[in-house]
Design a protein around this nucleic acid. Structure first.
Lengths: 170, 170
DNA sequence: ACGAAAAAGCTATGTGGAAAGCTTTATGCT
DNA sequence: AGCATAAAGCTTTCCACATAGCTTTTTCGT
């Protein structure tokens, strides 16, 4: 065992107060939340510089990732991100106003439209993805390589076990 | 290696589109986010039943955890949760209106007040903490015991390495 | 072919929490 | 002691996103 960290303090407080609370589930939930918060924290700082919200970033990243012609339907974006259809609509309106995406009617399905990155949208998407990934890399660089890879592998296994029943996509 | 999961698909999409993006930092960030989302998801469902927001739950849990007389200053709550001072204020107003916390002036420091769980607040706090922990335990139960403990230990080590410079408390 | 039900996506409204600014009280410097 | 600065916490404003309901179009059953 390593020396006590901040989560250990929480655990031992619960151990005194309500012993049945202090267990592995609490530890895992807290530690997982802390690691995610660290990633989110640095990503948020980068996105603030670029004047993008998390949701906007998500849309740009998904559109860039699908490759030419950088085009998807709103419903596909709603599904790929964890966003409501109304939320997607708002985000697309903002991105449209900023000139980062354009929209065109779908010839086959009159209910639907295509959302497409503009050339500037492609640029911003790439800049944002690079900035966020670089920020994440600065965190991972603090971890010894072997340990980071171990964590990744264990996480993958665990997620495979966990995700059989919980929603979660991305 | 295990078989490809959903994150692997994202990685390979980036590998085609912008190869420098597809790396360990992205994988770790995504997998960490997914695990945290799984925990948050089930916790949110429990809290919804109890008519509590995440922030309200946080306040109740911290107050219950410090033990008798279940009392802290708003600034201590602001620090313990990841909340702004204004956000803390709003949450306390709601909890006060719901009869779960009471407030009393601090005799020593006129700027400050004490926030204290009412008897009902203690009950609700315990019910909420038990419900959330039980929900988390249902997730952890899907993971083989040895692997869950391995993950916890690796996470702890990694956090120790990462947290030297990133904020993050709780 | 026609009506019912489902699907896509938009609009309107609600909400939780952040940010900034204000008031009051405490502290520190000279 | 007296003034300036800092700290505590509340109020106000704002914003991103969720939820619910609506319109339009498609699909499916008969």
């Amino acid at each position: 065992m390593s020396e006590p960290d901040h989560v250990d303090e929480i655990i031992s407080a619960w151990h005194v107060q309500l012993p049945e609370i202090a267990g592995l589930p609490l530890e895992l939930a807290k530690r997982s939340a802390l690691l995610t918060a660290a990633f989110d924290e640095v990503a948020a700082r980068e996105l603030e510089r670029l004047r993008l919200t998390q949701a906007e970033y998500g849309v740009l990243a998904v559109l860039r990732r699908v490759g030419e012609p950088y085009r998807l339907r709103p419903s596909e974006l709603t599904g790929a991100l964890l966003l409501s259809s109304g939320g997607t609509s708002n985000v697309l309106k903002r991105l449209g106003a900023a000139g980062l995406v354009s929209r065109e009617a779908d010839a086959d399905d009159g209910r639907s439209t295509w959302v497409r990155l503009t050339p500037r949208g492609v640029e911003v998407a790439e800049a944002a993805v690079r900035a966020v990934t670089a920020a994440h890399a600065r965190i991972v660089d603090r971890i010894p390589r072997a340990e980071a890879e171990l964590l990744n592998n264990v996480l993958k296994d665990v997620l495979a076990a966990v995700e059989e029943g919980v929603l979660v996509r991305r």
